[in-house]
Each structure stands twice: as C-alpha cells, then as structure tokens.
C-alpha cells in the first residue's frame, strides 16, 4: 500500500512568531511539525505494520514550504515515514489554500499517486481545514474528513467521525483521502533508533518546474486572499476577574457562553 502523509511546518505559537511587513508569517522562526499531523503519521505507521510485510508498503511524507520545513519532514521520518518529499520554491510563498492544494495535487501526481492520502484535520497556524477537501477534489478521489479512527480493509477505507453526540462510521473505496483529528490514536514518541535511522532516509526536494507548474499559478499574486494586516490579539493572561459577592458572576458566565456560541440549541436539558 502506498500512503502519502501531508505534513506542515508551523511556527511554535506559544514560544512566539513574527509577521513580515506584508502581513505574511515569517516562517524562519522557531517551528515544528504541526501537532495534528502527528496523528496521520501514527495512523500510517500502524497501517503499514498491519499490512503483510511482503505487500511492499511505503509511507511518504509530503510538505510544501520553505527550507525550514525540512524539519517537519525529518520529524515525520522519525515517526515512521520511509521517504520525504519537500516542495520548495520561492514562488509558492504566500499561496492561499487554492494555490497550496494545486501544488500538492501536482506533487502527488508526480509521485504517481497514492492508495491513501492522510493528513491532519487542520493546522495550528491558519487552521482553515480547507486543503484536505480541495486536494481530494483536485485529485478526484473521495475524502473522509475529521476522522477519529480509520481502518483499511482490502480496497476500502473505513473512518469514524465523532461528534458531540454521534459516531458516524463511513467507508469509501481506495484511493481516498482521510483527514484525522486528535481523537485518533495517540502518536508514539519516536525511539532513539527511529530518530537515528530517520537521518539516513532520503528527502527529495522539488520546485515548481519539476512539477510542471507555472510560478504565476500559485503564490502571492495568484492568491485570492490578501492579508491586509495582522495584530496581536488581547493576551489571555490576566483575564477578567469577577467577585461573586459583589458582581453578577452568573451573568458574566452566561454572557461568555453566549458570546462564544457555546450554549446548545434549546438551552440544554
């Protein structure tokens, strides 16, 4: 089975990050593999270990990003991927979801396609969740998104999506794309052995020309989303303190629930 796992290099948000004057994220700061992307890597590792060894399975970690993004690939290789593919081109910088999914689709076609494409349900930095379905549509394969678990039976993949009140189990024939949430199997912390061996695994780097894409089809200029400005949000530290003996604490709490759309329809039981 041929599995491609999409991974993303994201800034370490808690530690800090910078934006360039044009409103784009400065991706040269402290970064790491998007935490949610560890779940598809874990799922891929488990799938491959279940499949018959003779079946010749490979797990390829694929990323689009600047030079630094190789770190995400390296981590993916430590977590069980066999091979890394890094699409790196100055012209890609500033792409929106449409541009990125175009590059990914071209890269996957270049790699000869895959039986299963796995990815995280969203990224820590922009958290759009747009890429998985756009990519599946571009590749014309079905997608099972927001999965809490998956299983491959023969030529079919089955996934469970958990919601607050239901578990939806669905299936689709391969090839397919599955995006996973953090409800999936906890990623295994890689062994020292895996870390060492990962250094010896190949990482291939391609640019747009290799994929046969015109620079004008992606990047800032092609992006239909223009960032006008970025400002730090109000820091959480030192939120509002209400003294129940003098203020209406209940009203404050209800207002917070209401403002954040956390009151269930019908006001609950």
């Amino acid at each position: 089975m041929k599995i491609i796992v999409l991974v993303k290099y994201v800034p370490d948000i808690e530690v800090g990050y910078r934006f360039k004057p044009d409103g784009r994220l400065d991706r040269s700061g402290e970064g790491l593999l998007n935490q949610l992307d560890e779940y598809p890597l874990e799922a891929a590792r488990r799938l491959v270990s279940q499949v018959d060894a003779a079946a010749d399975s490979t797990v390829t970690a694929l990323t689009v990003g600047p030079d630094e993004a190789e770190e995400a690939i390296r981590r993916a290789l430590q977590m069980g991927a066999d091979r890394g593919v890094h699409i790196c081109d100055q012209a890609i910088a500033g792409s929106d979801a449409l541009g990125t999914s175009l590059v990914l689709a071209a890269a996957i076609n270049q790699l000869g396609g895959a039986d299963l494409i796995l990815c995280g349900a969203s990224s820590a930095d922009s958290a759009t969740s747009l890429i998985p379905v756009q990519l599946a549509a571009r590749l014309q394969i079905p997608a099972l998104t927001g999965a809490a678990s998956l299983a491959v039976n023969g030529a079919q993949v089955t996934a469970c999506r958990l919601t607050d009140n239901a578990m939806i189990e669905s299936r689709t024939p391969l090839p397919a794309l599955v995006s996973l949430t953090d409800q999936a199997e906890q990623p295994t912390y890689p062994s020292a052995k895996a870390v060492m061996l990962a250094r010896r695994k190949p990482v291939e780097v391609y640019d747009l020309a290799d994929l046969g894409l015109a620079p004008s089809s992606v990047g800032c200029d092609a992006a239909r989303v223009k960032v006008l400005g970025v400002e730090p949000a109000i820091r959480r530290v030192g939120g509002r303190l209400v003294d129940a003996s003098s203020d209406d604490a209940v009203a404050a709490l209800v207002a917070l629930l209401r403002d954040n759309a956390l009151i269930p329809v019908g006001g609950g039981a």
Binding site: N165, V254, A261, I263, V265, G267
Partner: peptide
Amino acid sequence: TAAALRREGTMKGPCHGYNR
C-alpha cells in the same frame, strides 16, 4: 448558571453536533 441557561432555552444557536 444552569438555571439561567434553562431560562435562555428559547434562544437558538448553531448546532454544534457535527461541527467540531
């Protein structure tokens, strides 16, 4: 707070059921 929420029962919000 639970009582206040019950009083707000008429208020509608989007369904969170499948939108996590």
